[in-house]
Write a protein that binds this DNA or RNA. Structure first.
Lengths: 159, 159
DNA sequence: ATCTCATATGATAATAATTATCATATGGAA
DNA sequence: TTCCATATGATAATTATTATCATATGAGAT
């Protein structure tokens, strides 16, 4: 079990929404809270499921729209992944991701060194670099054990 | 215009396919060549379109299957992206990606420093790290110019 | 070179992921 | 409060991907 990731205070979250011209609604707060409570980079579908209990009426397309709104307002981000449904991240701190190439599991991890890495001095073309997105790819504990046992790597994830 | 990325020789490509237990077929060679000829990380759909001329009969689902086979055999990779259709890469050399957060454009770029970066000494849990996946996120020349002109960042990409 | 059979392809259907449409409801400025 | 631009809920449509199955073919054995 890992502690929940640093999330914005309700007041700060509201402030950022308004600053981006996005209205504050109960549904948007609920989606943000569901995301902030899940450190495993849930899919939109997963967020929707989690919300079923308290928001039985909230339809999936609305969750998609709200996710887009929250991303525009900078409350959450879409996490880079190798295809499959988009995965989300409400962790506001600079951090990296550990990605299992066998099962697709992805979790936050922070390296002081990597977090402090400065951008290359010269970039091509007039490209204006703003930040890094660093993933450490390998095998998670579970898949690593399996690979060791079988001498073969497992197949690609399903969800 | 950028030069085409380093690709495997036909003989080496065939060898790797057989080594992975994947039969060598004309279709698989064609898909690999189409991918090797496109440095802009095409989608499966884009590869299919490009092949239409020489392989009018090759159906999209087959391209999907072949892409999976080529990935298993290690001839190509799926590139990390923030949702949307999977994007592919036949560039076998260690390299990084420049990603425009506004239009989604993605291109190869190689930094000697980043390519040589060694993995953190200690990783959590028994996670066995193998490699980095590093993206430099920012604005491409085109979107950078637009943002400067308008004081506002453009909307999300469509393809 | 031919035979054989496991596997690939082509055609098609099905599912999953995401976006669009539109009538009704509501946040928040006046 | 009143009003209106925008959000939601319901639903349909589109896009992305995977499954199924009959036929064709690569490549090891004869």
């Amino acid at each position: 079990m890992e502690g929940s990731p640093p999330l914005l205070s309700p007041a700060e979250a509201d402030r950022r929404l308004r600053a981006a011209g996005v209205r504050v609604t109960a549904q948007r707060r609920a989606v943000y809270e569901a995301l902030a409570a899940d450190p495993l980079h849930p899919t939109v579908e997963a967020v929707h499921s989690r919300l079923k209990k308290n928001w039985p009426s909230l339809p999936l397309p609305t969750v998609y729209r709200i996710v887009e709104d929250l991303a525009v307002a900078g409350l959450i981000r879409r996490v880079a992944s190798d295809g499959g449904p988009q995965r989300l991240d409400a962790n506001a701190e600079r951090h990296q991701h550990l990605v299992c190439r066998a099962c697709g599991r992805m979790e936050d991890w922070t390296s002081a060194g990597l977090s402090g890495l400065s951008l290359p001095r010269s970039l091509p073309d007039g490209f204006s670099g703003e930040t890094y997105d660093i993933r450490i790819v390998g095998l998670c504990r579970t898949c690593s054990a399996k690979a060791e046992a079988r001498g073969i790597i497992p197949k690609r994830r399903k969800s």
